[in-house]
């Protein structure tokens, strides 16, 4: 198996008091290196829950998750932090940038925790910002950037440590259609360079940029098919 990500019968049960709720009811799928996958489905179907598990932010109640062939379930919190730092890049719906911090320092953040020195960090961060088309905006604070620009900063931050996979949970959810399109063009370009992307979205025209579409319903996968668009 050359899959970067391989989920087998992943279940996630939330316990609230004496109530139990099974948000994921046996999810299995694999993602090969270089794929661009869109995940769709109704609200509450478990897309984010699944993304959190894939992103090593949460652990499944049962099931096996292999990332690059490594069993994530057996790792301790520090190892998971390392995985998030080096193998994964996150893009969130709400951008999640640090306020009062220049854009370039936001982009540097993963490198700080990777232990790079200031010079290397700055070099890589500037390159990543160029890649997302934000050259010259290095010293702008998030409040001095448009929504689309903020999301580009977030993408640069996700890219900067050369991750194997970028995980994006509704990256265009807060953006208008023109800006969404620009972001998707950027994603497509990154994907062409070989980066694996898994993206949750509610919008069909956004999902159309992906090469494969997985649809969730009530914690299960109800369809998994190519979009027809070749990556």
């Amino acid at each position: 198996m050359s899959d970067v990500i391989s989920l087998t019968d992943i279940r996630r049960v939330f316990t609230m008091g004496d109530q139990q709720f099974e948000a994921l009811k046996g999810i299995s799928y694999g993602v090969a290196a270089g794929e661009f996958v869109a995940i769709m489905g109704a609200s509450g179907s478990g897309k984010s829950t699944c993304m959190n598990i894939v992103g090593c932010l949460d652990r499944p109640t049962s099931g096996q998750y292999l990332l690059d062939g490594l069993d994530v379930g057996a790792m301790d919190p520090n190892q998971l932090a390392d995985i998030r730092n080096k193998k994964l890049g996150f893009v969130f719906q709400g951008f999640n940038l640090l306020a009062r911090t220049p854009a370039v320092e936001n982009v540097e953040l993963p490198l700080v925790y990777a232990g790079l020195n200031a010079k290397e960090r700055r070099q890589k961060a500037v390159i990543a910002m160029e890649q997302v088309g934000l050259a010259g905006k290095e010293n702008n604070h998030p409040s001095q950037l448009s929504g689309g620009q903020q999301q580009r900063v977030a993408i640069a931050r996700a890219l900067v440590n050369n991750p194997a996979v970028i995980l994006a949970d509704e990256p265009t959810g807060n953006l208008d259609s023109t800006t969404s399109e620009e972001i998707m063009v950027l994603f497509t370009a990154l994907n062409k360079k070989g980066i694996t992307i898994i993206m949750v979205t509610h919008e069909h025209d956004v999902a159309a940029y992906a090469g494969r579409q997985i649809t969730f319903k009530d914690g299960k996968i109800i369809s998994d098919r190519p979009t027809g668009r070749t990556a």
Binding site: L57, D82, N85
Partner: peptide
């Protein structure tokens, strides 16, 4: 809290 969450998602360890 949110800042802490962002840092953790990006690779900060508990000790950091």
């Amino acid at each position: 809290t949110r800042e802490i969450g962002i840092r953790m998602a990006i690779g900060a360890k508990k000790n950091d």
